[in-house]
Each structure stands twice: as structure tokens, then as C-alpha cells.
Design a protein around this nucleic acid. Sequence first.
DNA 1: ACCTGAACACCGTTCAAGT
DNA 2: ACCTGAACACCGTTCAAGT
Lengths: 226, 226
Amino acid sequence: MATRRQRTERRADALSKDRIVDAAIEILDAEGERGLTFRALTSRLATGTGAIYWHVANKEELLTEATTRVVDLVMMRVPDSRTPAAGARAITLIALGVFDAIDEHPWVGAHLPRVPWQPGMVSLFEGIGGRLDALGVPGPAQFNAASALVSYILGVAGQNAANARRHAPGTSRSGVLGEAAARWEELDPAAYPFLRKVAPQLRDHDDREQFLAGVDLILAGLTAGQ
Amino acid sequence: MATRRQRTERRADALSKDRIVDAAIEILDAEGERGLTFRALTSRLATGTGAIYWHVANKEELLTEATTRVVDLVMMRVPDSRTPAAGARAITLIALGVFDAIDEHPWVGAHLPRVPWQPGMVSLFEGIGGRLDALGVPGPAQFNAASALVSYILGVAGQNAANARRHAPGTSRSGVLGEAAARWEELDPAAYPFLRKVAPQLRDHDDREQFLAGVDLILAGLTAGQ
DNA sequence: ACCTGAACACCGTTCAAGT
DNA sequence: ACCTGAACACCGTTCAAGT
């Protein structure tokens, strides 16, 4: 009984996978992906590298665990419903939830596309695929439909992560967009007619709205035949 | 005159940005992204690291140049046409061209989403956006439409790159998919009904066809209102 | 102008040794 | 069983020195 007690009631500061992942997320959010090193982790947790490697296989597992937590938090908040309208709404909620989560934790956007069938990715696939019945997408088309939606979400996720990595947290978004738009306006009109035409839209667009427009586009394609 | 001659007709083995990028692409194709180090480059080019840094700012520029070459090669092969059918076909050709290029050079799929408005990305955006007029997509909707298509392509690109990075070039694709499908079939049916249902489709699906189905889905969404 | 290569400031990971 | 921390085998990048 005494040993049992000792094993279950560990000291509050005892090392565990959970505490390691906690610390990793704090570092990732504060310093970005580049800041997460085993040296930073050991100093924050006041241990040696070997202690961390006892609980976690390697850095990839650490990032995967952290990513899983963030994605699962998003999925937990989505209601499941069975009418077509509710199906579309649930998918939009998942998509926006992932978008916002990546806005808050850009490293998730970088890691999610990197490890093929990691748990967070599996949850996402199930979460979206499971709503396609309600949407009225026929069974055989559901696999491709879910895959298209997830690929689109991961594509935006990766780009947003890349944007966040480049610009310091304080950087003005409109400034960055304005510079990019100005570059587009100076391109050779013969070679880049489209970019010149849409440069003003680049300057004024909202990433979140544009992301949502893409989701709506795919949903429209899915229900186009009905 | 003699000096001019000397400057333009350099020795065949003289270092230049082009030759460095050539060597980088060879290494990337043969050894993957992990194989491209400045040590590998210097030994292949028989110089010192400083020589490479004289021509190229850093590793990211090297990867961006290499990526640009691959993407531009794809874009060069797409005919431009003005009828709706030809517009859709051109977009499909670009999408498949990028897909196949990434199949051959997986590192492109990893780098393309990583550097926001790199030249290869700009070409891709222009190539797709420039065909939306022919497709009949109204002007104001074109920016979001191009963005959705490109994001989807980058999403698939990133995942394919991740897959290639994990499995040695010789690995049997059906074996990998079979194992993944088997894992899905063992999931809790209450928690993962969708994945269990589509597991057989995962086992048999073709990545390229699935990618194309996604492109068609977005194109269908774009022309749904017409 | 262009190249050399040693040196710097890092990494992730391993492992013998401790408790 | 769990932890320590030095050591290993790498990296990208810089820079004084050469031609």
C-alpha cells in the first residue's frame, strides 16, 4: 500500500511525458519552432537530456504530441449533427477551428503536414469525413471528399506557419501585404497579367475570409450535383 | 578584348550559381533533403564552403532556386488557351504537372509551402489565375479561386513530400497503404466510424487520381453557379 | 573578384554512470 | 525505474587569409 501510494502520488515536480509536452508547448508558443531545443527543454525542466529521452523517443514525437493536443482541443468543441446544414456547419467549424489554432500556434501548421498519419491528422480526417453523410455526399465519394478538404486545410496551414515563422510576432500584416502587392504591381504585365490585376485584392484581403471562401468552394463542388 | 574573352569564356569547371544549383538538385534527388549539406556540396564541387557562400546567400536561397527551376519547367509546358474547356484543361495540366514534379523531386513539395512568395509559387499562382477568365470565373472571385487551388496543390505537395521522406525510395506503396488501412480497421468503431468505413478505399486508392478528384471538385465549385 | 578551409556556435541523440 | 551530464557526430555560417 505504501509503495502504491508512492507510485501514484508522485511529487508535483516529477518528470512525465505530460509535463515535458507542457513545457514544449510553452517554448513553441513563446519562441517558435526554432526555440524548441533539448537544451532549452532541459534548462526549463531543470534536468538532463537523458531524462527527456527516457519519456520521449525523439523530437518528432514531442512535436507530434504537442500537435495532437492542439488539434484534439479543436475537435472537442465541434457539435455533431445529422442534417445537411449542420453537416456543412460542422465542417466549417472544424476548418475554422484548425485555422485559428494555427494562427495561435503556428508550429502546428508546420508539423501537421510533416508527419503523414499522426493522431491529429487522423482526428481531423475523421471529424470531416464523419460529417459528409449529413451533407449528402454519396458513400463512395466521401473518401476523396474528405481528402480534398483536409489537403486544402493543410495547405493553408503550412503557408500560414511559414508566414508566421518569417515575420516577428509584432509585424504589421498590412505592411507586409502592402509590400508584396507593390512588388506585384511592378511585374511585367505581359508575363504576369493576373498578378497585376489582383494586386489590390492581395493588399486588402483577409486571410481568414479567404480560407473560408476556399472551404465554401469545395463544399459547393461537393453538393453541385444534388 | 583579351580580358573580355577571359571573363565571358570561363573555364568549364568555374564555380557559378547555376553550377551550384545543378549540384544541389543532383544531391537532393539522390539523397533527399537531408543529404543536402554544405559539406556534401563542397566535396562534390571540390571547393570550400566560402566559395559557395560567395555565390549564394544561404541554404534557403539554394533550395528556392532549385525549386524555381523545377516549377518553371512545369509551367513552360502548359499551353495557354481561351475557351472554358481549355481553361479547365490548362489548370488540370498545371496541377498534375506540379504533382508529378513533386513525385520526382519530393524536396520541392517540402520547400514550396515553406517560403511564402518565392518565384515558383508566384509562377504557379499566375499560371492558375491566368486561366480563370477562360473558365468563366468572374473577376472579383478570381483571387480567392486561385488561392484555393494553389493552397490545395501545396497541401497535397507537402504531404507527398512527407511520405517520400519517410519511406526509402524502394518501399512498396501498397505495403505502406495496407498497413495504414489495417490500423484503421482496428480503430474503435464508436470513435472512428468514418475511418473504419473508408479503410478499404485507403488500401486501394491511387494518390494521383485522388489528387485529380480534388482539383475537379474545386473546379466544380467554381463553375457551380453558371 | 573569387576562393580556401579552419573555426564558431550551435544542433539531436547516445550512453556510461549514478540513485 | 528513472535521472545526470559529458561526449559524439553532426550542422549552417563566418571570416581571416590567400590568389
